[in-house]
Nucleic acid binder design. Structure first.
Lengths: 152, 152
DNA sequence: TTTATTAGTTGCATATGTCAATCATTATTC
DNA sequence: GAATAATGATTGACATATGCAACTAATAAA
């Protein structure tokens, strides 16, 4: 398998590209609202947080400039997927909340994704997938450590 | 491990983000030329081809519009990493060639990447990584099949 | 030799992204 | 308690990224 000679990042990008392509096509068919990938990732990440989140948190978490996040939130708010709510304890902050509509969209997307996954993973064992997730998780954690270390 | 509940795409994105962040920081330190990720992926993909490649091929392969690729090639050409050469058999076509400078950049990047990889993969077994690559490859191939199937 | 197809290009619109400057609010310090 | 600093959000300027539609030049098909 010559694939092993390819840089890890490239391997993953090459996997992700056609996968997201199919995902986008299917999502476009079933939902009228069309989100770009960065928008969806932002929406998903806000939703995922258990604590209150503000713009600054998302900028840090996604590794982008605040203004980039701000403009995406503008778009998400225009589509009624996210709301800004002023924090009454600190009026500089806007808490970001996913609306019911946003939650429905995420649920819909998750369904499409899980259907796609079962097609994509056909032929792979449970054990293989556990290993895959383990490796992905490992790389994520290590990368974050390195990122923090080199930022200091 | 609750991570398994996350959509596969999200898991991979979450792995890729900090990894690329570190990669970019290190690459920026060692090379004066700064490429964006899409530019680098394009450069790498042109380089990877064994046969002659033209703009149209890259647009198809990367799943983007011809004009998007065209403008990136403009940028890569301006940076002297890629050259267009008119195909003498069919003068509509421009063959894309990676320059020596481009090749050096790729080699440099590969080195940085492989160093990073050995840090990131520390603690994972060979067998784990083989499984990871196998799964990634499997997903890529299946996705491409689905993509083609749904395009027809 | 018309006509159709193909590869590349251009204009336009939107999205994404960084940086620097600014505004309002809250914390700190003297 | 008033001046100053720090924080969070916003804006403007600018470059890149991306898709769509219209167009040009070259080649293939009729």
């Amino acid at each position: 398998m010559e694939i092993v000679k390819m840089p890890l990042g490239m391997v993953v990008i090459k996997m992700l590209k056609p996968m997201f392509c199919v995902l986008e096509m299917r999502a476009a068919k079933q939902t009228d609202l069309k989100l770009t990938m960065p928008q969806f990732v932002l929406l998903f990440t806000i939703n995922e947080e258990k604590e209150e989140v503000i713009l600054k948190d998302m900028a840090e978490k996604l590794g982008k400039d605040k203004s980039a996040i701000l403009r995406m939130i503008d778009l998400l708010e225009k589509k009624e997927l996210v709301r800004r709510v002023v924090d009454q304890n600190d009026r500089r902050k806007n808490q970001l909340m996913v609306t019911k509509k946003g939650e429905r969209l995420i649920a819909e997307f998750r369904k499409i994704e899980s259907e796609l996954n079962s097609e994509l993973l056909e032929g792979l064992s449970e054990a293989d997938m556990e290993t895959f997730y383990k490796v992905a998780n490992h790389i994520q954690i290590k990368s974050e450590q390195l990122k923090i270390a080199s930022t200091i």
